[in-house]
Design a protein around this nucleic acid. Sequence first.
DNA 1: ATTATCTACGCAAACGTTTGCGAGAACGTT
DNA 2: AACGTTCTCGCAAACGTTTGCGTAGATAAT
Lengths: 341, 341
Amino acid sequence: MSKKQNTTLKDLALALELSISTVSRALNDHPDISISTRERVKLLATKLHYTPNLFAKGFRTHRTHILGVIVPNISHYFTTTILKGVLSESENLGYRVIISESKNDEIKQTEMLETMIQFGVDGILMALARKTKSIDSILQIQNRIPLVLFDKVSDKIPCTQVVINDEEAAYNAVEHLINTGKTRIAIIKETEQSFNSRKRFEGYLRALKEHNLPIDEKIILSTEDISLNKGKMLTNNLLSLKNRPDAIFAITDSAAIGAIKALNKFNVEIPNEIAVVGFSNNINSTIINPSLSTVDQPGEKIGRTAISYLIDEIENPKETLLTKTVEIKTNLIVRDSSFVP
Amino acid sequence: MSKKQNTTLKDLALALELSISTVSRALNDHPDISISTRERVKLLATKLHYTPNLFAKGFRTHRTHILGVIVPNISHYFTTTILKGVLSESENLGYRVIISESKNDEIKQTEMLETMIQFGVDGILMALARKTKSIDSILQIQNRIPLVLFDKVSDKIPCTQVVINDEEAAYNAVEHLINTGKTRIAIIKETEQSFNSRKRFEGYLRALKEHNLPIDEKIILSTEDISLNKGKMLTNNLLSLKNRPDAIFAITDSAAIGAIKALNKFNVEIPNEIAVVGFSNNINSTIINPSLSTVDQPGEKIGRTAISYLIDEIENPKETLLTKTVEIKTNLIVRDSSFVP
DNA sequence: ATTATCTACGCAAACGTTTGCGAGAACGTT
DNA sequence: AACGTTCTCGCAAACGTTTGCGTAGATAAT
């Protein structure tokens, strides 16, 4: 009904007795326009609540100021903290974000890349779906628009990648256990060689080696799809060992919580008999009893830096694509599951 | 480098020796164009991977096929399940979604409404920020584009609102406690009269009345900002009562978990001495020990129906704005915190 | 005085699509 | 044979913005 016509450049031009092009340049601070007229134009523009028509603009400049973000699963708490950073940073820099879930489905993932490009996003930020094989479609995206990877990354894709220092974080976690007097530390990890799992395992190994502790295959457990239940089951296996471990480092919080549940069930004293450390700082980690020691991943910071790199690449296009890994520091949060007063 | 020019209507027209307008109409199934040419055009279009330039299109039609979604906090698990539904349904119907967080800040909320409109969204879906006062700005939005509310709604805004049947859900939860033999049921709710809290309280009262149980003000507890810690504190209060309750109905899972933590601390047997029921079916509800009985809110369904109503309004504009409340059924999940074999 | 340089602005095309209007061809009607 | 319809299609304008180019006037250089 109230058609609330937005004011356009034409309106401003008419009112100021200038040409449309001059008004446009004035608003964009083009040096061809004298300072005085620039100010005159801007004054009226704000007075009339002029806001540029984003379509006409994007239509001309092929820039939409919209970013695409693809995550495997939006319900993971860690993901949402990243999204918080993504949203706030991009809004600060004048961009909006459209989000999609790949559900760890590679087909869907490439579909999304396509439609996002079709929707004209200026750049894409994504965490790879599990077991992403066909790098091709992703590489194709790259000579269309900038791409930045985070969390789930791949060194086969030449772009900037924002991750945490998995290896060091795991090293610190295991070292912490060693410092509390533990000498036989089990690990629960993924079989499937995900980037994160591999790095964390390396950190685990380095910590043991540097502290001259033996590495025992029997307490290095792997599972295909790591989860709370798998954590439980594998912990049961550990408990049935003749030579039980005195600590468990689980590569993910859910597995760690499963471990605690299993230990609780068999009345194993935590952390005295067996300590537990997880990874991610889920909300759950304070719900479980005893509360879980874990590696905190600063999600917001990851999101913010990933976005800032992406926007930088959009606004200052580089000639060559190169892999650049940005590592965000994590920090260990010690709680009751590993705390020895 | 490889400028990968997208094919345009012009290209098709040239190749087919037709005019641009005919090609356009053919692709849009305009009756003026003969079926045979329509097919010819479409064939070549798919062969050449023609995809319409969304900007030019939006520029002309003032339609972007982008929806705006505003939520108070993206990190709430319940919110993410809703978003799952929102994303999948809108993608099915050919729309994309841009998401923003209001952080329960009313100022930010109205800002976001503004910039979303500026970005040309076709419609907006939102959950109100807590204590939203100035309905004005929202009403203003409404005569620009369609608006649908979900979860946190207000009957002062004439639009369709998708919510759960709070009253009935609470009724069922309390009735369940009564059926297990409980007769003195406390409630932990919000003071601030949020829509949800009020409705759930009404359900609580109705359940007691219909089962001829007395209503005792001393076990009706309220808090301004409901949380895990508040749940703990209020439960401590309940425990210090001479006449303790034999069950607690907390209006939110976090408060219920706080209650369980407090009960565990004082070695109160759950559910025999005091049973607990929460509301939301957080992930946490299975982490806590004993596991929490709670009301499951089908987030995905809420998201999907909200989106489908929104898109319907976009594609079939109504003349008059009217309040229409759509209630989604919940169901009670009984776990150990209230289960009596 | 003539020419070159600079400043400040306007003209008009272009981006790709949709759409009102008009018009030729084919057909049937009288 | 003249006329009215219907079916297909093309012409051209329009959406709001950016931008290459042109240019009038002012200033500086020769």
